[in-house]
Design a protein around this nucleic acid. Sequence first.
DNA 1: CCATTTATGGAACGATCATTCCATAAATGG
DNA 2: CCATTTATGGAATGATCGTTCCATAAATGG
Lengths: 196, 196
Amino acid sequence: MTRGRPIAFSPDEAANAAMQVFWARGYESASTRDLLEAMRLSRSSLYQAFGNKEQLFLEALRRYRESLLARLERRLEAAPSAMGFLEMLFCETAQEAGSERAALGCLIFNSASELGQQDGLPSQHARQSIVAITALFQQAVMRGQAEGDIAPKRNAAALASYLTMGMAGLRTLLKSGATTDQASQAVELLLDGLRR
Amino acid sequence: MTRGRPIAFSPDEAANAAMQVFWARGYESASTRDLLEAMRLSRSSLYQAFGNKEQLFLEALRRYRESLLARLERRLEAAPSAMGFLEMLFCETAQEAGSERAALGCLIFNSASELGQQDGLPSQHARQSIVAITALFQQAVMRGQAEGDIAPKRNAAALASYLTMGMAGLRTLLKSGATTDQASQAVELLLDGLRR
DNA sequence: CCATTTATGGAACGATCATTCCATAAATGG
DNA sequence: CCATTTATGGAATGATCGTTCCATAAATGG
């Protein structure tokens, strides 16, 4: 059925390489040269396989979001308690302070900050990804409330927004060079807000 | 003493116009065309008066920072209580949800997010501006502790980082289209963290 | 092996980027 | 009014942007 020369690269690996570039440089600042070099393919192949820069970004963001959410859902499910999951997540992130990983931040929050309330699909998808993160936090909060670790009187949606705000702020702190102490102390206070 | 033709524009107004452009579009995405149009002067005059784009940005960021800090210090000083000042600040910001003002965000947090841990002066100055904001928060926290409104046992520096994290996160929430309810609920929980 | 189909490398395009330069306009002090 | 100084408008520069196009290489099914 398939005719002609088959592609010589892995679309999967190429998309992941593109994701790394957008993650490190941002949507607009990532040039096609950067992308081609990281993806190790020619201009023709990029446009043939991924359409254009915008579509490539959407694919990269989609992969990042789905990979992140899948990992978080898996960890939440496997965690002895939802509160423990949240503690682990935020404390581990705070521990990244000073590292290259911390300087990268999170592709979703990075993109939301860069693209703001623009009209195009990249901005819309970034914002929708934040909604998805908040939904996952709300799941965790509700389970934590059922388990008795999280204040049951509080509105779960409000606590979820609070956590998204906290993670977004934590990412900004880390990007702007906060120390491990600063980040982990801030996270400790944030997590205290769940208990009472 | 001064000889020759005097400049036909107000350097002060021109710098403020440039600040608006960097605020709305970001450092890299703000083109010299955007800047010239907003500042209403010719290329020659821009380079003559401000050096280049980087120096113009540094001047814009400096103005934004000093104006913001001066306003906040004034409001803190005038406030009946430091806790009241913080409540007012965060609640007012949350109320911006959905507005054009919310979509702009804060030039300092925007720049810190865009420029991350880069080597150049723009990045360094953005990060230093966040340090200055945290210092102001710490002042407010210490006064709030003295006034009995803020948990006296807590480390003031830790609470200050917590507030900077909160404001950074709140700005991200607002940029990504959070509703007034989401933002103000998250802020309420954040402020509760100061009391206990 | 051949005709067909598809991928590939690289040149080329037009647009825009930040910056420089120069001829000219305009205001000055004397 | 003149010589001098500075600001101004706009053209020019070289680089880079995202994208398109085309000739060629490579693999296919028959």
